Computed example of a mutant assay.
Amino acid sequence: MTYEHKTLWDYGKYAPRTPLSGHVLVGVDGSAEAARALDRAVAEAQARRTPLEVLHGWPWARHGTPEPARGADETTHSLLDRAHGVLRTAMAQVRERAPGLRVTATLSPQPVAAELVRRGRNAALTVIGSRGLGEITGLTAGSVGWRVAAHCASPLLVVRGEAAYGWPEHGTVLVGVATDLDTEATRFAFEQARLRGARVRVLHACAVPVPAGTAPAADADAVVRRRAAVPGRAAAALRGKYPEVEVETDTVWGGTTQALVEATRAADAVVITAHRRHGQRPGPRLGPVTHALLHHAHCPVFLVPAP
């Protein structure tokens, strides 16, 4: 393993550098959830044959920005020692899991959510945990994890559910499609299945299209046929590009959110398009399906930003 410890702290002096590109980025905060996210990030970097960047951001905003070394108080020194300890522990974990992996450790003085989003723009994948003791992993409204999910510009993996603990494996990557235009999420699911040697299940969950008695039977049947064809159309262009990937397509009628959450019980990962809403409040908001999966999915969740 090539270990490049490019820490950005010199007791208050920030040395900016050009972020990596095409790599796997993972946020760590010393929690058990972050350790599981790091394990998954190592596996993703190995599968993609790309470098790994382990990021620990400055999460102690209430203490302010540290002064240079001569003026640093005891609290600052203690916090910096803890931060370096988090990175050392993370690097030891990577060294044990993947001795040949090229990895960079980064300690940034910037707010951690903003730094994950910024560095994630150039990453092939950003990985975070779903909850934990630190500020990286919580997914409550306004938390670091929630802000990363709402603003990420490249694919994000939120490690949660039974598969986060290494069991069980179903050999299935689930992708939820709202329409056959969710092409980026579907392509990402096929690629993930190829890397894992798994099959893809393309699932379109929607409400009952026409309430009984409100439209002619022929019209209702036409709507049902169109919506039932959505997952097949979403996968059609990718079957030829990924001939080695087994594909299952399915449309489930009823509650969209409940159907997707239930389907994650039999998947190793779920992929969805990160549809965001812009309203009166500042910044983008996550849609209800994304919200539900981040809180209740039984497997890790990949969010793929909409083009």
Rank of each mutant, 00 (worst) to 15 (best):
G255R: 09
G255S: 15
G255Y: 08
G255L: 07
T257G: 08
T257E: 13
T257R: 09
Q258H: 13
Q258V: 09
Q258Y: 07
Q258K: 08
Q258E: 15
A259H: 03
A259G: 10
A259K: 03
L260C: 10
L260H: 12
L260E: 08
V261S: 04
E262Q: 13
E262C: 03
E262G: 09
E262P: 05
E262K: 11
E262L: 11
A263Q: 13
A263I: 11
A263S: 15
T264H: 07
T264W: 11
T264G: 07
T264I: 02
T264K: 06
R265N: 13
R265P: 11
R265W: 15
R265I: 03
R265D: 15
R265A: 14
R265H: 15
A267W: 14
A267D: 14
A267P: 15
A267S: 13
A267R: 07
A269K: 07
A269Y: 12
A269L: 13
V270C: 01
V270E: 02
V270H: 02
V270M: 02
V270S: 02
V270L: 04
V270F: 03
V271N: 07
V271W: 08
V271G: 06
I272A: 02
I272M: 09
T273H: 03
T273L: 01
A274E: 00
A274W: 00
A274Y: 00
A274C: 06
A274S: 13
A274I: 00
A274P: 01
A274V: 01
A274Q: 02
H275K: 05
H275N: 05
H275A: 02
H275E: 06
R276E: 00
R276L: 00
R277L: 14
R277E: 13
R277F: 10
H278Q: 05
H278I: 02
G279M: 11
G279E: 14
G279K: 12
R281N: 07
R281V: 03
R281T: 10
R281W: 11
P282Q: 14
P282T: 12
G283Q: 11
G283P: 10
G283S: 10
G283F: 12
G283W: 12
G283A: 08
P284Y: 10
P284F: 09
R285E: 06
R285S: 06
R285N: 05
R285T: 03
R285A: 02
L286E: 03
L286Q: 04
G287R: 02
G287Q: 03
G287N: 05
G287M: 03
P288Y: 01
P288D: 04
P288M: 04
V289S: 00
V289Y: 00
T290I: 01
H291T: 06
H291G: 04
H291Q: 12
H291I: 01
H291A: 04
A292P: 07
A292S: 15
A292N: 12
A292F: 12
A292M: 08
L293H: 06
L294P: 14
L294G: 13
L294Y: 15
L294T: 14
H295S: 14
H295I: 05
H295G: 14
A297R: 07
A297P: 11
H298G: 14
H298Y: 15
H298N: 14
H298A: 14
H298T: 08
C299Q: 12
P300W: 08
P300V: 09
V301D: 07
V301E: 05
V301P: 08
V301S: 06
V301Y: 08
F302R: 05
F302P: 11
F302N: 10
